[in-house]
């Protein structure tokens, strides 16, 4: 397990008694969660449990209807100015990569820094190349996403988010759409990122990653946080029966 020296007690995300509905369907029920700077949290749970919706609420890709979400001391409301500020501080990596297919890898990485952060083009390109080197694909910079493998695309997506120099990174099942042989390269990139002290919220089924990197593991079911614990206790002595069942299903095969 990677020891987290970067974890501090300074909260960067505070969620208080948050509820969300899709129509009449109550997806998130009374969620309260605090995340400190540098903390790495893994969220797991069966499909439909609301884990993706939860992290999508943090950069307001989904709108919550009740309760508060405070990111970097700014409360998430309908105010567009606040929202764009928060979104440029919170990076997100998607299950299906969502790279812009009409732009080269380099342009994917420099678009938002140039237009949202108003970085000069040259600086943005230098930063992008630095981060592409960090995810180990600088040689693909001038190719288009369609010419890369899934693992490479996901690493570009990570670099693209990092180019905005975010304080928090959200990962929404980053390895679920990948072939088994490519999962490792993406997980390695994420582990390296964790070592730099990035605050990370990761929705994933990769329990090896959770054991290795997470400061805390959250189990969600039917829109509720059922259990939250450090990885050692979470995997060795789960308290709740539903957690036990879930773990037995994903670990014993």
């Amino acid at each position: 397990m990677v020891v987290n020296k970067n974890k501090s007690s300074k909260p960067v995300i505070e969620i208080k008694e948050m509820h969300k509905w899709f129509g009449n369907f109550h997806v998130l029920k009374n969620i309260s969660l605090g995340v400190n700077q540098g903390e790495r949290i893994v969220i797991c749970g069966p499909s439909g449990s609301g884990k993706s919706t939860l992290i999508r609420c943090i950069n307001r890709l989904e709108v919550h209807q009740q309760g508060d979400i405070i990111v970097n001391n700014v409360e998430l409301t309908g105010d567009l100015k606040n929202l764009e500020a928060i979104r440029s501080d919170v990076g997100m990596v998607f299950q299906s990569f969502n790279l812009f297919p009409h732009l080269t890898v380099l342009e994917n990485c420099t678009l938002a820094p140039i237009w949202v952060k108003k970085l000069p083009k040259k600086e943005a390109e230098e930063l992008a190349m630095e981060l592409l080197t960090r995810v180990k694909i600088p040689e693909q910079a001038l190719k288009y996403p369609g010419q890369l493998s899934g693992g490479q695309q996901q690493r570009v997506a990570i670099a693209r988010s990092l180019c905005m120099q975010p304080k928090i990174m959200l990962f929404d099942e980053p390895t679920s759409a990948l072939d088994p042989e490519m999962i490792k390269e993406v997980l390695d990139t994420m582990i390296e990122l964790a070592e730099t002290g990035m605050t990370m919220l990761v929705v994933t089924h990769e329990m090896g990653f959770a054991k290795k990197v997470a400061d805390s593991v959250i189990f969600m079911d039917e829109g509720e946080i059922i259990e939250q614990n450090d990885p050692k206790n979470f995997f060795n002595n789960p308290k709740n029966d539903r957690t036990k069942l879930f773990l037995s299903q994903i670990l014993n095969h």
Partner: peptide, 15 residues
């Protein structure tokens, strides 16, 4: 255009 394109752009803070 897939919805993910807009979500990615939103997540990057684009207006």
């Amino acid at each position: 255009i897939p919805k993910g394109q807009y979500e990615a752009a939103d997540a990057l803070g684009m207006n």
